[in-house]
Simulated assay, not measured.
Amino acid sequence: MTALGARGVPVAGSLEPGAPVLDLQAVTKVYGEGDTAVHALRGLTLSVERGDYVAIMGASGSGKSTLMNIIGCLDVPSDGRYRLDGLDVGGLDERRLSILRNRKLGFIFQSFNLIPRMTALANVELPLAYGGVKKDERRRRALAALAEVGLSDRLGHEPNELSGGQQQRVAVARALVTAPTLLLADEPTGALDSRSTAEVLAIFDRLSLSGRTLVVITHEAEVAAHAKRIIRLVDGRIADDRRESAVAAPPPRLAWTREGAR
């Protein structure tokens, strides 16, 4: 039975101390039936420990987007088991999955996914509002998150008043503000120029040094080179899984913790 708080919210921290943040066992995903069936994932087993920084690479059709959707609780496996921070998500209904996504996962997308007519500050506060956090606390944590990504001087700017790199940094702040167990980034630099890419990757480096768990889906070798571990998918299977030397980065300066997010 899933352990939940009084409001149906998954309890803070891992349900199994020492459990991996991600634990996928023999996960398959099949779209369609019979002769038209597409096997996107083929018995994939993957474990990601707390504090790891993983890049998942693969050509188009390799299964990396499907894997991201399953890790992010946006889709469910056809078979196999998925545990997030020690919690078996297989039996959760959509309401509880939504709560789990809000509390445990921070999403960063290629297209930023900011609300157009909301300021940077309001965009970052949004997940906290959904989570029922009071206004003063929302404001404090959103300001800290925007300061961490270097945007304290852009609080009142709407997305169309920001560069692409600044929009992505707002998206990173929004992902961080709930102090999630896992940061999940899908092609986070795909729409950025080289300077903005370097800025976002430097933030990821600092987050990794501070002990955050990151999984980045990317086809760019430059992005993957910042990770501690690179996994390559081919035809829905892991073809290569190896450790890399971490890229040097500035010391961490994060202003909030999971304890402060409760």
Rank of each mutant, 00 (worst) to 15 (best):
T2Q: 13
A6F: 05
V9S: 01
P10N: 02
S14G: 12
E16G: 01
P20H: 03
V21H: 02
K29G: 00
G32L: 10
D35F: 12
A40Y: 11
G43E: 10
G51T: 12
D52C: 06
A55K: 10
I56G: 01
M57A: 11
A59Q: 15
G61P: 04
L67S: 05
M68A: 15
V76Q: 15
S78I: 09
D79Q: 14
R81K: 13
R81A: 09
R81D: 08
L87D: 01
L87P: 01
D88I: 06
V89Q: 10
L92A: 06
I99T: 13
L100A: 15
K104V: 11
I108P: 07
I108K: 06
N113P: 03
M118P: 00
A120R: 01
N123D: 05
N123Y: 10
E125F: 00
L126H: 14
Y130R: 08
K134Y: 02
E137W: 00
R138M: 09
R140D: 13
R141H: 00
A145H: 01
L146R: 03
A147M: 08
G150A: 05
D153R: 06
H157W: 03
E158T: 14
P159E: 09
E161F: 03
E161P: 00
S163A: 01
S163D: 01
G165D: 07
G165T: 00
G165W: 01
Q168A: 10
A171G: 09
V172G: 04
A173K: 05
A175W: 09
V177Q: 11
P180K: 07
L183V: 07
L183E: 08
L183K: 07
L183W: 02
G190L: 03
A191S: 12
L192G: 04
R195F: 04
E199P: 02
L201A: 00
A202W: 03
I203L: 14
I203M: 12
F204W: 08
T213D: 11
T218K: 06
T218E: 06
T218S: 11
E220K: 04
V223Q: 03
A225P: 05
A227F: 13
A227C: 05
K228V: 02
R229I: 06
R229C: 04
R232S: 13
R237M: 06
D241W: 09
D241A: 12
R242F: 12
R243M: 14
E244I: 02
S245M: 12
A246W: 14
P250L: 13
P251K: 02
R253D: 15
A255V: 07
W256K: 05
W256N: 11
T257Q: 06
T257K: 08
R262F: 13
